[in-house]
Amino acid sequence: MTDRPDPDLNDALMERYGDAVDAPDMPADVRQSLRRMASRGSCRRFQPTPVPDDLLQTLCAVALAAPTKSDLQQRDIVALKSEDRRARLADLVAGQDWVAAAPMVLVFCGNNRRQRLLHDWHDVPFANDHMDAVINAAADAAIAMAAFVTAAEAAGLGCCPISAVRNDAAAVSDLLGLPEHVFPFAGLAVGYPAHPPEIAMRLPLHVTCHVDTYREDGLKESVAAYDVRRARAQPYNRQRFVATFGTSDTYGWSEDKVRQYSQPERAEFGAFLRARGFQLD
């Protein structure tokens, strides 16, 4: 793997957001940690080197040390160590061919089952059988996955989330043996990067970071400027649904996202959750 020069924290933030962010003085080790986080990127090409079991277990332990709603601990990690299982999962996430080449794939799951079992064991009714049960478990899984990514990248690994495990959540659940009230939240491909990941540009902070109250002043203009900046530096290598929309000379982030969500995605996920015993009221 050829290393790219590591940007300074301020340079990484400028590259990410297009705005100057002057980080305050801080100890060098803290600045280095923040620099790694600011310059991270999703990794879809991996070296064939396997992830050592002891490292994987350590990273899972660190991830599950992350915050959890009310100490309910409603998340689980399924590590697909079997090459056959990884291949079967790759077949279920259409359009994600790189998943099959990942040395390790994890699936982060929301788990409301344990809480319900506690109520059964203590013979106390479960009084929160509504939409918040899903949100709490999904948030717990998301927090754990974010912590795993941060820990894994600090250890020299690369990661890329796989939301497509929800494309056919029932089949993925069957593959993993998930019972009622447990659902796949997201997969995560993990391995040693074959090349340094690119810093993906983000919307400027004045669009997404608010003070005291949410605002949308100048949002359309800010998105348009972001489209231009990103298209110049990181153009898309293909345009979505050309047969429907044609080819655009000014194709940018906003148009890509509009085209993506012009087609239904995971419309059956609510029905899947209901079939798994959740009430979504």
Rank of each mutant, 00 (worst) to 15 (best):
G18R: 05
D19S: 10
D19P: 01
D19V: 07
V21F: 07
D22Q: 13
P27F: 08
D29K: 14
D29S: 07
L34H: 08
R36S: 08
R36K: 12
G41S: 02
C43Q: 14
P48E: 04
P48G: 03
D53F: 03
L56N: 06
L56K: 05
T58Y: 11
T58M: 07
A61L: 15
A63Y: 14
L64G: 11
L64D: 11
A66G: 14
A66M: 11
P67V: 10
K69S: 15
K69F: 15
S70D: 02
L72G: 06
Q73H: 03
Q74K: 02
Q74M: 04
R75H: 11
D76S: 07
A79T: 00
L80C: 00
K81M: 05
E83R: 00
R88M: 09
G95I: 13
G95E: 12
G95Q: 15
P103A: 07
P103D: 05
M104T: 00
M104Q: 00
M104S: 05
V105F: 07
L106P: 02
L106I: 02
L106A: 04
G110F: 07
N111K: 04
N112T: 09
N112C: 13
R113A: 10
R114T: 05
H119P: 10
D120I: 12
D123R: 14
D123E: 12
D123I: 12
P125A: 14
P125L: 08
P125Q: 11
P125N: 14
